[in-house]
């Protein structure tokens, strides 16, 4: 098994396997880097609502594609459906927070549960309609690289590259909007547009992550690398790069592991790898890590005594 894993890690596990783990790595890179901005803009849980709101779209897209005689499992088609309902969820979230007195977190949870509930209703409809073979949509809940097509992996890798390119262009406007939106507006930045762009980039990461990580846990790939990287640097550019690196590492390792161990759900594996990186950083990061802070305190105490 170790040899197989090593092969997968070094992209030697066959062409398809190499594409899958490359796709997962690029996804992790994009999600980690975008997530650094999403988290700093305090939109972490918005992305969770967004992810859950993709489920009805996945189900409806499957039904639509199957009804027109196509392959209900075409990834691009499913992602279009997912994107549409996620956008609808975002629209309602915005309406709830703009036009009612509900606090943002309550509105977020309400959208998350309502859309997710609708998705589950649609999934039970799909399960009950006899459409020949099982739909296999459960893989979108917790992610699965098993049975991933070459075209799926290419779609994910290409999407990740596009997201990274856009992020590179927008980084300055996004950073200023996240740090001090009032000042950013005075400097001529359209902060509404910047926020919208960030939400769309986040949504793109969520959509690409559905197949590999799954909609329940994709939010972890946006938040956890960002918080981990924050422990290592005080500069937003470095934080975004580091978060991307952590995401890429976790995506690659997790996908490779699940290629070797087909029963292992990919999403939870990737999430636990990032969480391990987070815990290690909480302990060992220089400056902000718990150990470093304890040492500093001890040194200061010694100075006071001396």
């Amino acid at each position: 098994m170790t040899a197989d894993l090593l092969q997968a890690l070094l992209f030697q596990g066959g062409y398809n396997a190499a594409l899958v783990s490359l796709g997962a790595a690029l996804l992790g890179l994009a999600a980690g880097a975008v997530g650094a901005f999403t988290t700093l803009r305090r939109r972490a849980l918005t992305s969770d609502a967004m992810a859950h709101a993709t489920l009805p779209g996945i189900g409806l897209a499957f039904l639509a594609m199957a009804a027109f005689g196509g392959d209900g499992r075409n990834l691009a088609g499913l992602l279009i459906g997912a994107g549409l309902t996620a956008a609808l969820g975002l629209y309602w979230l915005q309406r709830l927070t703009d036009t009612t007195r509900l606090p943002e977190d309550a509105a977020t949870g309400a959208i998350l549960s309502t859309f997710y509930g609708a998705g589950i209703v649609i999934l039970t409809v799909i399960q009950n309609l006899s459409l020949g073979r099982p739909a296999g949509l459960e893989g979108f809940l917790l992610g699965s690289t098993a049975g991933m097509l070459k075209s799926d992996a290419i779609l994910i890798a290409a999407g990740g590259a596009v997201i990274l390119a856009l992020l590179l262009i927008l980084r300055r406007a996004l950073a200023m909007t996240a740090f001090d939106p009032g000042h950013a507006r005075l400097m001529g930045i359209n902060t509404r547009a910047a926020d919208m762009a960030l939400l769309l980039l986040t949504l793109a990461c969520v959509l690409l992550g559905l197949r590999v990580v799954g909609l329940i846990l994709i939010v972890a790939l946006l938040i956890t690398p960002a918080l981990t990287a924050r422990l290592w640097s005080d500069r937003i550019g470095v934080v975004a790069l580091l978060a991307g690196g952590i995401g890429a590492f976790a995506g690659h390792l997790g996908a490779s592991l699940s290629l070797v161990l087909p029963d292992l759900p990919t999403g939870p594996a990737i999430v636990l790898i990032t969480f391990t990186a987070f815990l290690l950083s909480v302990l060992f990061a220089p400056g902000r890590g718990l150990i470093a802070r304890a040492l500093t305190r001890a040194r200061q105490a010694a100075l006071v005594r001396a």
Partner: peptide, 20 residues
């Protein structure tokens, strides 16, 4: 300034924002 004081920005990064 109503900003997140934990934000990963150094003093010089903040001043450079004035050059946008």
């Amino acid at each position: 300034a109503a900003v997140d004081w934990e934000f990963p920005a150094r003093v010089i990064d903040v001043v450079q924002m004035g050059l946008y």
